[in-house]
Amino acid sequence: MDWQEISGNWVLIPPRPSAIVHFLGGAFVATAPQLTYRWLLEELAGQGYAVVATPFVNTLDHVAIARDVLNKFENALDRLYATKTLRKAYFPIYGIGHSMGCKLHLLIGSLFDVERAGNILISFNNYAARDAIPIVEQISPVFNVEFTPSPQETNRLVQEHYQIRRNLLVKFADDNIDQSILLAKLLQPRFPGMVAIQTMAGNHQTPLGQDVSWPVGQVFTPLDAIGQWVKQQVYRELNQLKREILRWLNPLS
């Protein structure tokens, strides 16, 4: 199972997929999601989820980015069906976003007519441009630079127009820029009983973790034991995130 570049997306298709995941990453790591989120996405594909990860470059116009990544995603699906890489059947589609990727999924679900079985929104934040991009603070008083939509307008759009009923919000305990609790307050009255928020160990960079190969020799030495222990500790949080995502995607598994 290898990554393919299709219509501007990076795609992983397992032998018998059960659903499709549209993944959008964080603002400054989303240009190469097949690398920056490789471990997590390959784990999901290994569990039977077709992964379509759409790269994007951050600009101030988040509506334009949301429209572009949605178009690329739909073009990739068309190509996959046309080439019979995916058989023409109903596949539930789930959105998974990290950081800014959450905002893009929220905008897609608020502004465009899409069908989603649910969204997983990890480490959501919706800061103003001056807080999200340090250099903006130096020029903002002169040029009044802000994202489109602004944080306030994004909240209003979500509160009034967001269509995706089933949502999992993931918040890490050591993430001081997370705004998932605010998002939950917007979504829970709109979809009572359909919005879950999960707090787990980790920080804002946890989803970016990569597996480390620690080869063990023919004789298992104390150094090998230490290496395996370190690896287990480092990836405990990432594995917990993976398990929570898989549990929510398929509660009966």
Rank of each mutant, 00 (worst) to 15 (best):
R156Q: 11
A173R: 15
P151K: 04
K171H: 13
I164V: 15
D175N: 11
S150W: 07
T154P: 00
Q159R: 01
D175V: 04
K171F: 07
E153G: 01
A173P: 00
Q163C: 11
A173T: 14
N167M: 08
R156Y: 08
R190G: 02
L182C: 04
S150F: 08
E146H: 09
F147G: 01
P151E: 05
Y162C: 04
P151G: 02
R156V: 03
F191L: 06
V170E: 04
L183V: 08
T154F: 03
P151L: 03
K185V: 03
I177N: 06
N176I: 14
H161V: 02
R165Q: 14
R166D: 13
Q163W: 08
Q159A: 02
L169N: 03
Q159P: 00
K171G: 01
L157M: 14
E153N: 08
L186K: 04
V145C: 06
L186H: 02
N167L: 07
V145E: 08
E160Y: 05
Q179K: 14
P151R: 02
R156P: 01
Y162H: 13
N155I: 02
F147E: 02
T154N: 02
F172C: 08
A173Q: 14
D174R: 15
H161T: 05
L157Q: 07
P189W: 07
P149E: 05
E153Y: 05
V145Q: 08
Q188I: 11
L157K: 05
P189D: 07
E146L: 03
E160W: 03
R166G: 00
F147V: 04
L187F: 10
L183M: 11
A173E: 14
Q159M: 00
V170M: 09
Q163V: 10
Q179L: 14
K185C: 09
L168D: 02
A173M: 13
L157D: 03
Q188H: 10
L157W: 03
V170W: 08
I177Y: 07
